[in-house]
């Protein structure tokens, strides 16, 4: 094997793509932690739900086999979505929008009925409730959808996003899919960062995160701020779930578990509770995993990723960018 510059570059691009997915999921963990000091264990299942909702939407909008199977009124719409660049862009945009909204609402619903009643209970109670929700969602997908791994493609086996090379740089071909993931995740991260730091609602979120009771006394509607965090986090997780399905090619009811743990790790590396930290941690973890797999051994990728976690925690216990909610007196 010859380790050339182009090999290093290709592995780095693999890593950035993976890191973009981790960062999107990590934001959900870190937002909830920042505001409620609670780890939302059901977040990995919302990522999974995103994958399934996305597949459902894609099939309805662009799989001719569905239109033939009785839903013939979909056929003209499918003809549009399956034709040319405009149709493709519209298909992707509609898919992400619907998946993000549906899963975002699921997040709000879960917060309302599984976490809010326990807000003043001991810290462990909502944590256990979150594990319960996680198990419930996994089993719901297992029983109501399928125990099988489902291909992320049309019934005839063609992918919704064709595996095409977008451009070649230094002999490295970068695929359309990778560009889509990297650009979308960076845009969403930048948007969220601006949203939280510049807008009035963002300010309310930061205030709630610093001191929930004081923020409430100053007129911030705590319940809607928390509900908003539970909309945005899962919505971003859903985007990652759809990308995960498209990029790797399948969905399964327990697909959220490993990416969930990795993204949580990314949030911890960056400093849990800190939005920029989650993004940094996500990209860092993705790149480290990819390079470890490429230059050392695929069997050791997780070992090396978790060694990095341990090293970060030994030297910077609060994570790379520290904890945003450390000012409680």
């Amino acid at each position: 094997m010859n380790f050339t510059l182009s090999y290093l570059l290709e592995q780095t691009i693999n890593g950035i793509t993976l890191g973009g997915l981790y960062a999107l999921v990590a934001l959900g963990y870190t937002m909830v932690y920042g505001i409620l000091l609670m780890i939302n264990f059901a977040h990995s299942e919302l990522f999974m739900a995103g994958g399934y909702v996305g597949l459902g939407v894609l099939k309805l909008l662009a799989d001719p086999a569905i239109a033939k199977g009785g839903l013939s009124f979909l056929a003209p719409m499918q003809a549009f979505f399956n034709s040319g660049t405009a149709g493709f862009v519209a298909l992707i945009a509609v898919t992400f929008l619907i998946s993000a909204i549906v899963v975002g609402l699921m997040g709000v619903f879960i917060e309302r009925f599984a976490y809010r009643p326990l807000r003043h209970a001991p810290r462990l109670a909502p944590l256990i409730s979150a594990i319960g929700v996680s198990i419930f969602l996994q089993n719901a997908a297992l029983l109501w959808i399928s125990s099988k791994q489902l291909p992320y493609s049309r019934a005839d086996g063609t992918s919704f996003v064709p595996a095409k090379t977008a451009f070649t740089v230094f002999g490295v071909s970068v695929s359309t899919m990778q560009i889509m993931i990297i650009v979308t995740s960076l845009l969403l991260l930048a948007f969220l960062d601006t949203f939280v730091s510049k807008t009035r609602i963002g300010k309310a979120m930061r205030a709630t995160s610093q001191d929930r009771e004081a923020a409430g006394l100053m007129g911030v509607n705590i319940n809607s701020v928390i509900a908003l965090a539970f909309f945005i986090g899962p919505a971003l997780g859903a985007v990652a779930g759809v990308f995960n399905g498209m990029y790797y090619g399948s969905v399964k009811f327990n697909m959220g578990f490993i990416p969930g743990i990795k993204s949580f790790t990314a949030a911890v590396i960056g400093g849990i509770g800190n939005l920029r930290g989650a993004m940094l941690g996500g990209f860092l973890l993705g790149i480290i995993e990819s390079l470890a797999s490429g230059f050392i051994s695929n069997a050791y990728r997780d070992v090396i990723a978790f060694i990095v976690l341990i090293l970060v925690l030994v030297f910077r216990p609060g994570g790379l960018l520290g904890e945003a909610v450390a000012e409680k007196v």
Partner: peptide, 15 residues
């Protein structure tokens, strides 16, 4: 080596 539930082989494929 990979894991029996792995779905991400991108880095491996480059290798």
């Amino acid at each position: 080596k990979t894991g029996d539930k792995d779905t991400d082989f991108k880095a491996l494929v480059t290798k």
